[in-house]
């Protein structure tokens, strides 16, 4: 029998693969490494220390930005997940209709429109709203984040719904469950992992956003990423490394949970 084509046996496979991984991960490892630097340089190593973690912890601005980031991400991902769940049910649990593709495109718009365009558009739109209503609070940021998080929540939920055996819902109806009871006792529990995965993805995407936040925020509404961007313009200290490392840790933890949830029970 002829050996199957195996890309791993091509000449140069191992060096190219290694180089790619180095290019991907070396900067991150460097960043993480220097977050433990004792000195105040992000490039010259002068010994191990947790100094910058305690400095970040003691920094009231960092604390406020972190709190703001987490509240925005929590509220925005919650709103996005509820809307995405309804959208997913609306697009999978009814007969195919005219313009269905258009609806998909519309729901996934934030994935396709350049973020900077959305950012400028939102800035102008919310600027008008601020004038009219006089409201200056975090609501604008939350709404903006919710909007671009919808497709990230929608995709895993829809995938889960499409993979669900439709005869289960038929069986529930046959066993005297009203449409609401069917949703409550069969669809929703089976959809649970998909919803959790979608919410987590939305949370991570919101937590990480710079461009839209930078444009939409009012004065004193820095989130953690925009605070770090601001720091870059001044003297950079390993404090930024420490904050980045913590963010990285949180994101990795959430994404790991996401993969475990989507893998479990097929």
């Amino acid at each position: 029998m002829a050996k199957r084509f195996d890309i791993a046996r091509l000449p140069g496979f191992a060096p190219i693969a290694l180089l790619s991984f180095v290019a991907l991960y070396l900067p991150i490892f460097t960043l993480v490494g220097y977050s433990f630097n004792a000195g105040n340089s992000v490039a010259v190593w002068s010994g191990f220390s947790l100094h910058w973690y305690s400095a970040a912890w003691a920094n009231e601005t960092v604390k406020a930005a972190t709190l703001r980031s987490l509240s925005i991400a929590t509220l925005a991902s919650a709103i996005a997940t509820v809307i995405a769940t309804m959208a997913a049910i609306g697009t999978t649990r009814r007969r195919a209709f005219k313009g269905q593709t258009l609806i998909y495109v519309a729901i996934n718009q934030p994935l396709m429109v350049p973020e900077i365009v959305t950012a400028v558009a939102l800035m102008i739109f919310f600027g008008m709203l601020k004038q009219v209503t006089g409201y200056q609070g975090l609501g604008y940021l939350i709404l903006a984040h919710a909007a671009f998080c919808i497709p990230f929540a929608y995709l895993p939920i829809r995938a889960r719904l499409e993979g669900m055996d439709l005869s289960l819902e038929t069986a529930a109806a046959d066993l005297y469950a009203s449409p609401w009871q069917t949703f409550r006792h069969v669809t929703l529990p089976l959809l649970g992992p998909g919803i959790a995965a979608g919410a987590m993805l939305a949370f991570v995407i919101s937590l990480d956003d710079v461009v839209i936040t930078e444009f939409v925020k009012s004065g004193g509404q820095d989130t953690l990423p925009t605070y770090m961007l601001g720091q870059m313009r001044r003297a950079i200290t390993p404090e930024v490394n420490a904050i980045s490392t913590l963010l990285l840790g949180l994101t990795v933890a959430l994404l790991t949970a996401f993969f475990l949830l989507t893998r479990k029970r097929g």
Binding site: D165, S167, A171, D174, A177
Partner: peptide, 18 residues
């Protein structure tokens, strides 16, 4: 279906996995 006094045994059984 939920208003009809009949019940079905499905070919795929359609048991609730949760």
């Amino acid at each position: 279906p939920n208003k009809r006094p009949v019940n079905t045994v499905f070919q795929s059984y359609a048991l609730f996995p949760h």
